[in-house]
Structure formats: structure tokens, C-alpha cells
Simulated assay, not measured.
Amino acid sequence: MAELQRELGGSLGSVRRYPARLRLLHWIIAGLVLATWPLGLMIGFVKDAVKLDFYTVHESLGFLVLWLMLVRIGSRLTGTIPAVNGPALERLVAGLVHGLLYVFLVVMPVSGFLATNAHGFPLKWFGLVPIWSPIGKSPDVAATLSTIHQWSAWILLALFALHFAAVIFHHVIRRDETLYRIL
């Protein structure tokens, strides 16, 4: 901790950090996505005997991501966040990537939830709580929603890679306080 304080030229308290609720939501959602994304990718490779279990966990975690994202968006809209420093183009790209991350962290779970419903499998959240199905079985709609869900997953992965590359750039190359704002 002392090394970190020296590196920042003072105390960690001088870093303009995001509010605690946003930092907590950021890391919980990141952890859930890092568990949910590969779990969804693996579904195509598991035996039929356990495939439904994989779907249940994947969709339940995704549904949790959706609700946490809605809380995060509400917190972000009703609170203040620290201003971003840097060149205008860099701030524009950062804002665009963050905005798209938020969009796809809502689009992906919504499309997955609706696709599963349209395939005729309403969600029973973590196998315990039945969730109302807003649409009935509809194979044509299911195919479209599944495509949206799959494309959203790959777009989200690309956005995550950009976000992570920016974190590395700021922390290793620039050696600025960007990473510490969210810790």
C-alpha cells in the first residue's frame, strides 16, 4: 500500500474514485460475466445429460447480470462520477466504449432470456424461482433472438478486450490513477 501511495505521489485517498456502490457493482458484474460468458460457450460441447443444468446456471447468472446492470445504470444516472482527464479523443473513445459496454450488458441478457422463452423453456431462476415468460414458444422469434444474443456476446468480448487494453495502457504505460478509480 505504501508503494502504491508513493507511486501516486500521495495517498490513495487523493485518487478521485467512483462511489463505492458503483465500484462494487462493477466488480460483481465483471466476475459474473467472466463466469457466464465461457459457461455459455461450453453449452454446445457438454453432454445432453447435463446440458439443461448448464443452461439453467448460464441463464440464471445472465438474469442476475441484467438486474445488477439496471441497478448500476440507475446509480450512475442518479449519482456523480469523477471526471475523466486526458485528450478529447481519448475521452470520447472511453465514453463510447463504456456506453457500448452498458448497452450490450443489457441487450445480451435480455436477448438470451427472451430467446430461451421463445424456444419454449421459461426460466426457473437457479432452479428455484419461476420467472414469468413474457413471450410464448415461437421458433422464428427464437432464432432471431438467439442470433442477437450470440452476436452480442462476441461484441461484448471485443469491448471487454478494448476496455482491458485501455486499463493496461493507463496502468503500465501512462502510470496514471485510472485503475485506482475503480478499485
Score class of each variant (00 low, 15 high):
Glu90Tyr: 12
Arg91Ile: 09
Arg91Pro: 06
Leu92Arg: 15
Leu92Thr: 15
Val93Trp: 12
Gly95Val: 06
Leu96Val: 15
Leu96Arg: 11
Val97Ala: 11
Val97Asp: 07
Val97Gln: 07
His98Glu: 01
Leu100Arg: 01
Leu101Asp: 03
Leu101Gln: 02
Leu101Glu: 03
Tyr102Trp: 06
Val103Cys: 06
Val103Asp: 05
Phe104Leu: 03
Phe104Thr: 02
Leu105Thr: 01
Leu105Asp: 00
Val106Arg: 00
Pro109Ser: 05
Pro109Phe: 02
Val110Pro: 06
Val110His: 01
Ser111Val: 01
Ser111Cys: 05
Gly112Ser: 04
Gly112Asp: 06
Gly112Val: 00
Phe113Ile: 05
Ala115Lys: 02
Ala115Phe: 02
Asn117Leu: 08
Ala118Lys: 01
Ala118Glu: 09
Ala118Tyr: 08
Ala118Trp: 07
His119Leu: 13
Gly120Phe: 09
Phe121Asp: 09
Phe121Trp: 11
Pro122His: 02
Pro122Trp: 01
Pro122Asp: 10
Leu123Pro: 00
Lys124Gly: 12
Lys124Asp: 13
Trp125Ile: 01
Trp125Ser: 00
Phe126Pro: 04
Phe126Gly: 04
Val129Arg: 00
Val129Trp: 12
Pro130Leu: 09
Ile131His: 04
Ile131Arg: 00
Trp132Glu: 11
Pro134Cys: 02
Ile135Lys: 10
Ile135Pro: 07
Pro139Val: 12
Pro139Asn: 12
Asp140Met: 12
Ala143Gly: 06
Ala143Arg: 14
Thr144Phe: 11
Leu145His: 03
Ser146Gly: 15
Thr147Pro: 08
Thr147Ser: 14
His149Arg: 05
His149Asn: 08
His149Thr: 05
Gln150Phe: 10
Trp151Ser: 09
Ser152Ala: 11
Ala153Glu: 14
Trp154Glu: 14
Leu157Ser: 14
Leu157Thr: 15
Leu157Glu: 11
Leu157Cys: 14
Leu159Thr: 07
Ala161Ile: 15
Leu162Glu: 12
Leu162His: 03
Phe164Ala: 15
Ala165Glu: 07
Ala165Met: 01
Ala165Gln: 02
Ala166His: 06
Val167Trp: 12
Phe169Pro: 07
His170Ile: 10
